[in-house]
C-alpha cells in the first residue's frame, strides 16, 4: 500500500510524531542524561538551565530524564494493553462473529455489560483486587480493552462470513480455523489497524489518568500521569514542569489520533 504525503497528510504526521515518541521512549529505556530517580536537594525546583533543560522537580530530579523514563513506562503500558486487548478481542470476536448463535449472544451481552460501566471505575475494581503497579495496570487496562476489539472484529466477521470467497474457501475444504484466521482475518486488518491507533491513545490517557489519581504506575517507575499530578502543586511557582509534561502527553495523543485518522481513510 503506497500512500503519497499529499493524499494523506494525517497519516504521515501521525507516523512522524509517533515515531519520534517511540525513539524518545526507547532512548529513555537505555539512556537518560541523569538518573531519573536521583534526588538532589541543591536543585529543588531548579529552573531551566543548560544542565537541566527542563529544570528539576520538587526533589531535585531532572525533569527531562524523568519524562524520557516516563515515556518509556507509558509506551510499555500502552503497547501491553493494546496487545492484550487486540489478541483476546480478535480471537473472541472471530469466533463469535463466525459461528454466531447462542455463544455469540452470551458473549455480546457480557460485552455490553462491561461497556456499560465507566472504564476507569472497572479499572479501579481490578486494581483494588490485584494491586497497582506497571504490570497490573497493563493487565487491568488490557482486560477492559477486550470487549471493544471483540465487538469490532465480530462485526467484520459477521460481514464476511457468508461472502462468496468464504463459501468458496469452505468448499475447497479449508478448516474453520483456517477460514477464520487465514482467509477472513486479513480482510479486517485495515479496520483493526485504525482502531489500534485509537487504542494506544485511550491506553495512554487511561494510564495517565490512573497514575494521576495515584492508582496507576507506582514509584520508582516514573509515569507522565503521576508527574502531571505532582506538578500541579507547583503550577504557579514552576509552570514549566506541568507544561513540559503536559505537552509530551498531548503530543503523544495527537500523534496517535492523526495515525488513526490517516489509517481510517484506508479502512
Amino acid at each position: 500500500m503506497k500512500v503519497r504525503f499529499k493524499e494523506n497528510r494525517r497519516l504521515y504526521i501521525g507516523l512522524i510524531i509517533t515515531g519520534l515518541m517511540l525513539i524518545l521512549a526507547i532512548t529513555g529505556k537505555f539512556f537518560t542524561p541523569y538518573d531519573p530517580n536521583a534526588m538532589d536537594s541543591a536543585n529543588k525546583l531548579a529552573g531551566i538551565s543548560a544542565k537541566h533543560i527542563m529544570g528539576c522537580d520538587n526533589f531535585g530530579r531532572d525533569i527531562f530524564s524523568r519524562i524520557l523514563a516516563g515515556l518509556d513506562t507509558t509506551m510499555v503500558v500502552a503497547v501491553g494493553t493494546v496487545l492484550i486487548g487486540v489478541t483476546f478481542g480478535t480471537v473472541i470476536g472471530a469466533l463469535t462473529g463466525y459461528y454466531g448463535g447462542r455463544p455469540d449472544e452470551i458473549m455480546m451481552r457480557f460485552n455490553d455489560a462491561v461497556l456499560a460501566f465507566p472504564s476507569l471505575l472497572l479499572a479501579l475494581v481490578i486494581i483494588s483486587i490485584m494491586g497497582s503497579g506497571k504490570m497490573n495496570v497493563t493487565i487491568a487496562l488490557g482486560i477492559l480493552f477486550i470487549p471493544g476489539y471483540a465487538r469490532i472484529v465480530r462485526g467484520e466477521f459477521l460481514k464476511c462470513r457468508n461472502l462468496d470467497y468464504v463459501q468458496s474457501a469452505r468448499l475447497m475444504g479449508a478448516s474453520y480455523l483456517r477460514i477464520m484466521f487465514v482467509h477472513i482475518l486479513p480482510n479486517t486488518i485495515p479496520v483493526l489497524l485504525s482502531t489500534v491507533a485509537i487504542g494506544f491513545n485511550n491506553a495512554v490517557l487511561a494510564e495517565a489518568g490512573m497514575s494521576f489519581l495515584g492508582i496507576g504506575v507506582q514509584p520508582p517507575d516514573s509515569s507522565l500521569g503521576r508527574m502531571l499530578s505532582e506538578s500541579q502543586s507547583y503550577l504557579f511557582l514552576r509552570p514549566g514542569y506541568a507544561l513540559c509534561t503536559g505537552s509530551v502527553i498531548a503530543l503523544l495523543i495527537f500523534g496517535f489520533a492523526m495515525l488513526n485518522e490517516g489509517l481510517e481513510k484506508h479502512a
Partner: peptide
C-alpha cells in the same frame, strides 16, 4: 465437487 459463483466481484478474496 467445486463451484463457481455468480458474482465475480465477491467470489475472490480481496486481500489475497
Amino acid at each position: 465437487i467445486c463451484m463457481v459463483f455468480q458474482e465475480p466481484m465477491t467470489s475472490l478474496n480481496p486481500v489475497k
